[in-house]
Design a protein around this nucleic acid. Structure first.
Lengths: 121, 121
DNA sequence: TTGACATATTCCGATATAGGAATATTATCA
DNA sequence: TGATAATATTCCTATATCGGAATATGTCAA
């Protein structure tokens, strides 16, 4: 087999730096025409269209027709899974002391299995 | 050109479902031998080693030698960028009413430019 | 040194993109 | 209808993986 399909889930859609850039542009919640996005990010139009297409597929943006233009708008709620997952590890960068304490406690709890560890390179 | 290198940044490292699985296993902060991870996630050992290697490169995990074993431990703080970025859009899934209100206000503010919108497919 | 165990690495093949260029599509208007 | 603007969609190529299998590397113990 080969690499898994990416365009299908939010995590992969968002892994692309350029797509994150586009989302940042749409971050204020206002809808924008493709050309506006193109100007904002300085990428070729076909590229922007493709990325928007990916973002649309995963539901992170929505489209609306306005004459010949397509207005894209951020649908931020679909980014929640990413946030929720990352938040799982929040304690690693907040409450540093608590974290250290937790680790120490873990160590005590599992001392029997870990008592042969050496903790060095 | 081609697809951008992914293994180099946290967002891409984390985009892989299996890697997220591995991180979840290490989520309790305890260090684990590769084989323990292998058992926990039910993937072939070489696969786990490769994924751990990627996670190591982006600094999301750390290694320590313990005899013939390599103990991997989560370095969660390096996931902060992902959390921070996603948090930027937090208002989209919290304070739903505020959000609706915001949009309405946006619409009023930019009425001049948007007054020819039709809001339909 | 040999053996056993734990883990990493290499080789392979399949495939999913990303980008660029060119082109097709769609809508509006004169 | 024809022109023009706005976007989407191929087509094509280079390349970055992912997975699987086999193998190499490293460590300790007898």
């Amino acid at each position: 087999m080969a690499r898994a399909a990416t365009t299908l889930d939010v995590f992969n859609a968002v892994a692309e730096p350029r797509r994150r850039e586009i989302l940042d542009v749409l971050g204020d919640g206002r809808e924008r025409a493709v050309n506006e996005v193109v100007e904002a990010v300085g990428m070729p139009q076909p590229s922007v269209s493709k990325h928007l297409s990916v973002l649309l597929k995963v539901g992170v943006v929505t489209v609306t027709r306005n004459g010949p233009m397509r207005m894209y708008r951020l649908n931020g709620s679909n980014l929640k899974p990413v946030h929720d997952w990352a938040k799982t590890f929040e304690r690693y960068w907040t409450h540093q002391l608590d974290q250290i304490k937790e680790r120490a406690e873990q160590k005590m709890l599992h001392r029997r299995q870990d008592n042969n560890n050496q903790e060095e390179l």
